[in-house]
Amino acid sequence: MRVGIGLPSAIPGRDPRLLIDWARQAEEAGFTSLGVIDRVTYDSSEPLVALAAAAAVTSRIRLVSMVIIGPLHNSVLLARQAASLDALSEGRLTLGLGVGARREDYEAAGVDYRRRGHILTQQLARIRDHWEDGRVGPLPVSAGGPDLLVGGASPAAFLRAARLADGYVHGGGPARSFAGAATKVKAAWEDVGRPGSPQLWAQAYFGLSDAEAVNSYLLDYYRFAGPFAQRIADAGLTTATQLTNFIRAYEEVGCDELVLLPTIAELSEVERLASIVNR
């Protein structure tokens, strides 16, 4: 299993330029990918812009969105942006798309929340078309375009992943819940007769220098989850032992790449995490 690290692009109060040094260090430390999350109604950097900045100062590390809330975007422009970034990074982009979980993001962007699943399904096909047809420039450098991942937990999401994406990105939780989702993704792949096998990605939050800061960030970020925010905050990985056990558990259930998302906007977090992961 490969281990990646998230960019500090959605932590309020950060120095917006921190992610540049962060990206450089992450690559040096041997992480295999840099991840970004998407949330419109929150103090966070636009995910593809953040990845573009990271692309400029790195050369090997993969750049992954997990996930961009696709239906909020115009498909042509999203395809164009992703293709540009893919070219700029010499084929290092993996584009994860999902429907997201927050109605306010749809209200802010003026998109009908009830049509989100249907929009995403169409969008996946359209984006691929643009990448292959070249009518909308530029062409991505990756053959056929960057790999696509789909997130979500409904039957429709698994079907969507199998029909139109290259893999699945899990939304977080214990390894057991990841394993359950992976079984469904594989069943979907087999069901629709899609060749090959799905890439399986996962994510979790970490913060090593200050457990209290991890807690208060996650409580704030997940305020929309109401009383359940505390539960999500409690699952943040704050010690070496927790991280090691978590990584091992995910490895055992067949995860291809686990991306650890930051909760503290301090550069030292990269090194701290690396020293645990590389042990």
Partner: peptide, 13 residues
């Protein structure tokens, strides 16, 4: 499934 492109398959073992 498959009659229409968007359906709700109850995937599990």
């Amino acid at each position: 499934g498959g009659a229409v492109a968007e359906y709700e398959p109850p995937y599990r073992r």
